[in-house]
Design a protein around this nucleic acid. Structure first.
Lengths: 140, 140
DNA sequence: CCGGTAATTGACGTAAGCGTAAACCCGAAT
DNA sequence: ATTCGGGTTTACGCTTACGTCAATTACCGG
């Protein structure tokens, strides 16, 4: 199994530890908290990040890589948060949102595949030209 | 084969046609031109978009869906533009950039797949709860 | 006790990506 | 002749997502 990073200092991560681990600034993490995306514990004024806070941060960053806005990411969190209480209408709405999200992701994956295909074509072209130049050099 | 949209008015698209087709505003298109991403012909002051301009716009929008910045998108255009002239060093550099791009896209696709997997888990959970409620109603 | 390192809040700054008038031109239709 | 639906530039505004001081506070080792 993979080595899950453990909080060095007792049970909690510091803001600096997380910043270093994920290659972001502490400012960024505070900003996310400010926007309601993170809610670490406090010891006086100091933030104490649990493993679940770290997990959330990970999700935030993944969301960003997929071009979700912070607001959208927050919405999915909010959705997950009260998804357990099972009001029928809520659940149906929830299912709809999930379907939308899936569709977006699927078409995004298509975008990626198309781009990858074009990329490989360029690569082949590129290699061909290099190959030609090499042959020219030999005959020269 | 697919019906490639043809310019209605002779050989060129107007800015409005493209805006409608892609669901963006004319402002956006002008902005892209301002940033050097598009370079339509002119008839006096009026912009005339060729099919290749339209193709570029398509690429821009796809890039945006994949969380590329306009600058990054522009770079790839610039790259493609002088990729045909085959200076060896240029080509090697070019290949490197392509490799980077591919890696980014691949890891992005992984992000997508992970997210899709989680999404399906939530969906199953959701359906389970609904199923339970339905059974409760019957016994009631 | 002192200096260094890491944390805090608060505030202003900034780059990207457009939105939104304002003020104009121009050709076709009423 | 005017109105209407496009097109144009210029320019200021706004939101998102942080960067960047500044001015503290707190612990830690020497």
């Amino acid at each position: 199994m993979s080595e899950e990073p453990r909080p060095k200092n007792g049970d909690y991560f510091t803001i600096g530890e997380l910043a270093r681990e994920f290659g972001i600034t502490t400012r960024t993490i505070r900003f996310y908290e400010d926007q309601g995306l993170l809610a670490p514990l406090r010891e006086g004024r100091k933030r104490l990040f649990r493993r679940r806070d770290r997990a959330r941060l990970k999700l935030i960053l993944r969301g960003k890589r997929l071009a979700f806005t912070l607001d959208e990411i927050k919405e999915t969190f909010d959705l997950y948060d009260d998804s357990t209480r099972g009001e029928e209408a809520q659940l149906r709405y929830y299912l709809g949102v999930l379907a939308e999200k899936r569709n977006k992701l699927l078409s995004q994956r298509q975008d990626i595949d198309e781009t990858l295909a074009e990329l490989e074509r360029s690569e082949r072209q590129c290699l061909e030209i290099l190959e030609q130049e090499r042959r020219q050099k030999r005959t020269a």
